[in-house]
């Protein structure tokens, strides 16, 4: 029982981190039909900028909880700069091309950003571990957890609800949904599709950077952190069904729990637990758990 609780808690903590990143990925795919490999690079940039911002804030005497604001501002800043830049001046050149071509464009972008990050921040590690202690420790199922981990679960829930609410309950959200279902139809109804694309892409980038920014306190920020995020967040949205928010949430929880169960019960299987789950889901649900019915074009 205690073990089950531990697995549940560990799985949820991992899932919360994963969900924030995967949510951005699935949103960008839903609206722009781009599976963005550079998402991982923006995660890394988020972490780097957060590290720099927290240090900057601390030098102004704004420590403690201000660090959280610094991290949030870092994610917003990354999104506002990189989102429009990448969407308008790069991706837009390739719209209408095959999905795979767009995927490769983002791969090229990933390679470029990987070295750009190194040029800006060098290879030395950055630390912002202070915020990790902000919420103290919490005893749960006779184990110590860090309060920050629970805060991350809260952050994931807030992000999920906010995005869901914005899409389904606001007017501009419904415009975005309309673009998701049919770009041509929305355009002919007078929707400014270009603007929707840019907003959705920027929001996706924001979530990637947010994931990176709030992970920064738990890791040493250095080259190479982008790669591991990409595949695992791909797995999450594939399991959940591409472009689906509920899917990203369920996918993250499934991946988190599968990984936690593997670590506690069968550590030697941790390496491919995620891929096994992904293959298994696809074998039974070829388009993921939350597949959207698509019109058959005859």
């Amino acid at each position: 029982m205690q073990l089950a609780l531990t697995i549940l808690m560990d799985g949820l903590i991992y899932a919360s981190w994963l969900f924030v990143v995967a949510l951005g990925l699935t949103l960008v795919f839903g609206v722009l039909k781009i599976l963005n490999i550079a998402h991982g690079s923006l995660y890394a940039i988020g972490a780097y900028v957060a590290a720099s911002m927290v240090t900057l804030f601390a030098s102004w005497g704004l420590g403690g909880h201000f660090a959280l604001i610094a991290m949030l501002l870092a994610a917003i800043g990354v999104a506002l700069v990189m989102g429009p830049l990448m969407e308008r001046y790069l991706l837009r050149l390739f719209y209408g091309r095959d999905e795979v071509v767009l995927l490769l464009v983002t791969y090229a972008l990933f390679l470029i950003l990987e070295d750009a990050v190194k040029l800006i921040w060098g290879v030395n590690p950055y630390y912002v571990s202070e915020p990790y202690q902000l919420f103290g420790n919490v005893a749960f199922a006779s184990l110590f957890y860090v309060g920050y981990d629970f805060a991350l679960i809260g952050l994931a829930v807030v992000c999920g609800i906010a995005v869901w609410f914005a899409l389904n309950r606001t007017r501009s959200g419904k415009v975005v949904l309309a673009v998701i279902f049919s770009r041509e139809m929305s355009a002919s109804m007078g929707v400014n599709v270009d603007k929707v694309h840019m907003i959705a892409f920027t929001l996706g980038i924001f979530l990637a950077a947010l994931g990176g920014a709030f992970t920064a306190p738990m890791i040493s920020v250095q080259p190479g952190i982008s790669v591991s995020v990409i595949i695992v967040s791909f797995a999450v949205i594939i399991i959940g069904g591409l472009g689906s928010i509920e899917g990203a949430a369920i996918g993250a929880v499934i991946v988190g729990l599968a990984r936690a169960a593997a670590v506690h019960l069968m550590p030697e299987a941790e390496l491919f637990s995620i891929y096994l789950v992904m293959a298994a889901v696809l074998i039974f649900r070829p388009e993921g758990l939350f597949q959207r019915a698509a019109a058959r074009k005859i």
Binding site: W17, P267, L271
Partner: peptide
């Protein structure tokens, strides 16, 4: 006791740390 083998570059060790604490 615990014999953990996280994958290279895992980055997140919360679960492993729980297993070590247990």
């Amino acid at each position: 006791n615990a014999d953990l083998l996280p994958k290279f570059g895992a980055g997140q060790y919360g679960t492993e740390i729980s297993a070590l604490a247990r």
